[in-house]
Computed example of a mutant assay.
Amino acid sequence: MKLRKVTAASAAVLALSLAATACGGNDDDSSSSGSGGGGKVKVGIKYDQPGLGLKKPDGSFAGFDVDVATYVAKELGYKPDQIEFVETKSADRENALARGDVKYIVATYSITDERKQKVDFAGPYLLAHQDLLVKKDSKISKGTDLNGKNLCSVTGSTSAQNVQKTIAPKANLKQVSSYSECIAGLQSGAVDAVTTDDSILAGFASQDQYKGKFKLAGLKLSNENYGIGVKKGDTATVDKINKALEKMVSDGSWQKAVDANFGPADYNNEPAPKIGQLVK
């Protein structure tokens, strides 16, 4: 009889425990869901690229990639206060997606065959080209004009080597740790030109302290198809982002973002690319 009483009491405790569990809420913030609701979405961007992805001193974010990322999040069902921007450096982009640190990445992320082995891409959403940034009164317009000139790029970049290999083998290459250093060198006269993607160069040139001082040479030394990186196999999110990008172009928001972020540098941007069509 005593055994039955203990068993009954245990059953009652178990029932109460199960009921409490059923009534309790789920603490998951749904940061990797794609449905908005009460959760958040984590988006990878650059923090140090003016005109593209920049974290400002007040903690806010600005740039073309930020505008694209925000528009896409809205179409996925998220409000502005549900977006959490995460700094995603170039070397860690694939790992950040694989780990689930972010839902998608909008960070001057060129679509390449090698990268497509590790991640899926929506887009492209911008076609950029390798170019040169020079002073406004510079006569540099062709790569051969760089022979004997000081050319700046960041350490490890393939852009400067590409210039030396293809059009200006006698250019004096100066490699520094950041493009900000290159731009400062261009302003002071320490270097004659800076090379990387034209979108990145236009972003730097659009900063208030540089407006009207620099220009793009207009060379098209490579084709860079910027895509939005998504975890490998997440085709549902890729499809949703592609639809969002198509809408951004059709309603005029894409061109508005280009003008706002690159306009001061007189950036002669390519038309919005077609989804799934890469320019080789």
Score class of each variant (00 low, 15 high):
Gly44Ser: 08
Ala244Ile: 08
Asn223Trp: 09
Asp29Cys: 12
Asp113Leu: 09
Lys139Ser: 15
Phe61Pro: 00
Leu151Ile: 05
Cys182Thr: 02
Lys118Gly: 01
Gly252Ser: 03
Asn26Tyr: 13
Gln49Ile: 14
Val191Tyr: 05
Ala20Lys: 08
Asn242Arg: 10
Ser177Val: 05
Ser177Arg: 07
Val249His: 07
Ser250Asn: 12
Lys89Trp: 08
Tyr78Thr: 01
Ser159Glu: 06
Gln187Leu: 06
Asn150Tyr: 12
Asp58Glu: 03
Ala257Met: 07
Ser10Met: 14
Ala15Ser: 10
Cys152Lys: 06
Lys56Leu: 08
Asp101Met: 05
Gly227Ser: 01
Ser250Trp: 05
Gln117Lys: 15
Tyr47Gly: 10
Val163His: 04
Gln255Ser: 12
Gly51Asn: 07
Glu94Tyr: 14
Lys220Gly: 04
Gly189Tyr: 04
Gln255Asp: 15
Ala272Lys: 07
Leu133Ile: 11
Arg93Cys: 01
Val13Tyr: 05
Lys215Glu: 04
Gly123His: 01
Lys5Met: 12
Asp197Lys: 09
Phe214Ser: 08
Ser35Lys: 14
Lys56Pro: 02
Arg115Ile: 04
Asn147Val: 03
Gln130Arg: 13
Asp198Asn: 13
Gly189Arg: 05
Asp192Val: 07
Gly39Pro: 04
Val176Thr: 10
Ala11Met: 12
Asp48Phe: 11
Ser17Gln: 08
Ala217Ser: 13
Trp254His: 00
Asn261Asp: 05
Leu76Val: 01
Ala19Leu: 11
Lys280Phe: 05
Ala12Cys: 11
Asp65His: 00
Lys135Phe: 03
Gly156Leu: 10
Thr166Tyr: 12
Pro57Asn: 04
Glu224Asn: 15
Asn269Phe: 13
Leu216Trp: 14
Asp120Gln: 06
Ala160Asn: 01
Asp137Gly: 05
Asp137Ala: 10
Ser141Ala: 15
Gly36Trp: 02
Ala257Leu: 02
Ala122Arg: 04
Lys89Ala: 14
Gly263Ser: 05
Leu219Gln: 13
Asn150Ala: 13
Ile241Arg: 07
Ser159Tyr: 11
Asn147Trp: 02
Asp208Thr: 12
Gly44Met: 06
Leu133Asn: 01
Thr88Asn: 12
Ser188Ala: 13
Ala12Asp: 11
Lys89Asp: 13
Ile183Arg: 02
Asp27Gln: 15
Leu173Tyr: 05
Ala205Phe: 02
Glu94Leu: 15
Ala12Arg: 10
Val43Ile: 14
Ser178Asn: 10
Gly39Met: 02
Asn147Leu: 03
Lys55Met: 09
Pro124Lys: 03
Gly185Val: 06
Met248Trp: 11
Lys142Ser: 14
Gln277Tyr: 09
Phe204Pro: 00
Lys247Ala: 11
Asp92Ser: 08
Gly156His: 09
Phe214Thr: 09
Leu52Met: 11
Ile83Lys: 00
Ala257Lys: 00
Cys23Asn: 14
Asp234Ser: 08
Gly218Ala: 03
